[in-house]
């Protein structure tokens, strides 16, 4: 489904149900659009179930854009989308109350030990569903239901860079210090965005969290 959003953007909805397969189709549509080097294409904002296509209305109007997008969609329909293999990222995390101030409360609320929360968070492989909120911020899913917890009623004024956090079925790493309402359970020394490589994650990538000791966290450049 393709809808007109504004003078220079259209929203393509590729499905309703969030799934790794849908993400692969979204990534494939974005790849196809970028490969065409359309002069009218200004920007793409992929998310869980949609792609916002930003275009230049000096070159094409909504009907023209819709036609190009429909061409792309039917091409993708004819081929089985394997999706990009997607890089697997291993992200070191120092899970502790001193880096994850919500770890203790989350464990108590869920009737689990802290080490069990850490185990449940780090034993899964997550999928990168979307990038947004700030440069390099990847929305990863899905979190084990046993440790899902809502955003905090009052967001923190300052979440430190590298914080690893949970909000309902999503988890993420804050690339930079920022206000934020997610539940903080640890911190990673990994650089999530830099000027040369931009965002470490792309949609469709997979992520594993690897628990590390305090000493290793500091050794990898982590800060307390």
């Amino acid at each position: 489904m393709i809808e007109c959003v504004s003078e220079n953007s259209a929203l393509v909805t590729l499905g309703r149900q969030i799934s790794p397969r849908l993400t692969a189709r979204i990534a494939a549509l974005c790849d196809w659009l970028e490969q065409q080097s359309f002069q009218w294409l200004i920007d793409l904002v992929p998310s869980y179930t949609t792609v916002l296509v930003v275009y230049d209305p000096m070159q094409l109007d909504f009907r023209g854009v819709k036609q190009c997008l429909n061409n792309g969609l039917s091409l993708l329909q004819q081929t089985t989308v394997q999706g990009r293999p997607g890089t697997v990222h291993e992200i070191p995390v120092y899970y502790a109350p001193e880096t994850g101030p919500d770890l203790g409360e989350l464990a108590t609320q869920k009737g689990l030990s802290e080490s069990r929360v850490i185990e449940l968070h780090s034993q899964r492989e997550y999928q990168v569903y979307a990038i947004g909120f700030m440069p390099g911020f990847g929305f990863l899913g899905t979190v084990d239901p046993q440790i899902q917890a809502p955003r905090k009623a009052t967001p923190r004024a300052l979440v430190p860079a590298g914080s690893v956090a949970i909000a309902n079925e999503q988890t993420a790493i804050y690339p930079k210090a920022s206000p934020g309402g997610w539940q903080l359970i640890g911190r990673s020394p990994a650089v999530m965005f830099d000027r040369q490589n931009l965002s470490r994650f792309r949609i469709g990538d997979r992520v594993r969290f690897v628990p590390v000791s305090r000493a290793d966290y500091l050794g990898l450049g982590g800060r307390l």
Binding site: S6, S9, V45, A130, G132, F139
Partner: peptide, 30 residues
């Protein structure tokens, strides 16, 4: 809704009912 790309000028209405018009430095999805 499921988070999606936000266009320039989008009028968001969060639960408190006060509209927010999003401009150039807006977050990319919401």
């Amino acid at each position: 809704i499921t988070s999606e790309g936000i266009a320039m000028g989008a009028i968001q209405v969060p639960g408190d009912g006060n509209p927010i018009v999003l401009l150039n430095d807006r977050q990319t999805i919401g």
